[in-house]
């Protein structure tokens, strides 16, 4: 039995060691906003924040979570920066199929928490999640807008 801090609450998860945080969130805790895309930390659909830093949860086993504060997309609007990012996403009409966008919003929020005024290069370096709909330009525009 593991106890982890998700969105400010202590949650219990009776799972095997080695279970990625992604699957604890989705299947054990029923928080399906965080998406499974590739399972090998390539696509970023599963991005969450761990102590405020973007992290691909598909490669983050439960036993390493410890006392870290996990923030998922479900709580993004409770975060001041996250709320601004969501508003920018809506304003720029970023999503198409939307499947990667939870991860994109988490990555953008983590970037802006660390670097409130990112350069284009900062955005390029931080926003590496894949989007099969090709919304990359809209994503960059939304990040710049959220930082403005």
């Amino acid at each position: 039995m593991y106890e982890i801090n998700v969105n400010g609450e202590t949650r219990k998860a009776d799972v095997d060691p080695g279970t990625p945080l992604l699957w604890v969130l989705r299947d054990t805790l029923g928080m399906t906003g965080t998406k499974y895309g590739c399972g090998i930390a390539q696509c970023g659909a599963c991005t969450v924040m761990v102590d405020g830093t973007a992290l691909r949860s598909c490669q983050f086993p439960i036993e390493r979570v410890g006392g870290a504060r996990i923030t998922t997309i479900e709580a993004i609007e409770q975060d001041e920066v996250g709320r601004k990012v969501v508003e920018a996403w809506v304003e720029a009409q970023v999503p198409q199929c939307g499947y990667c966008q939870s991860g994109q919003v988490m990555a953008a929020t983590a970037l802006l928490k660390e670097t409130p005024k990112p350069t284009d290069q900062d955005i390029a370096d931080a926003m590496t999640n894949l989007c099969r709909c090709g919304t990359y330009n809209h994503i960059a525009a939304a990040v710049r807008q959220a930082a403005a």
Partner: peptide
């Protein structure tokens, strides 16, 4: 505006 962007931006 698309009807689904907010839901898709908030999981």
């Amino acid at each position: 505006a698309r009807l689904d962007v907010r839901d898709k931006s908030t999981g």
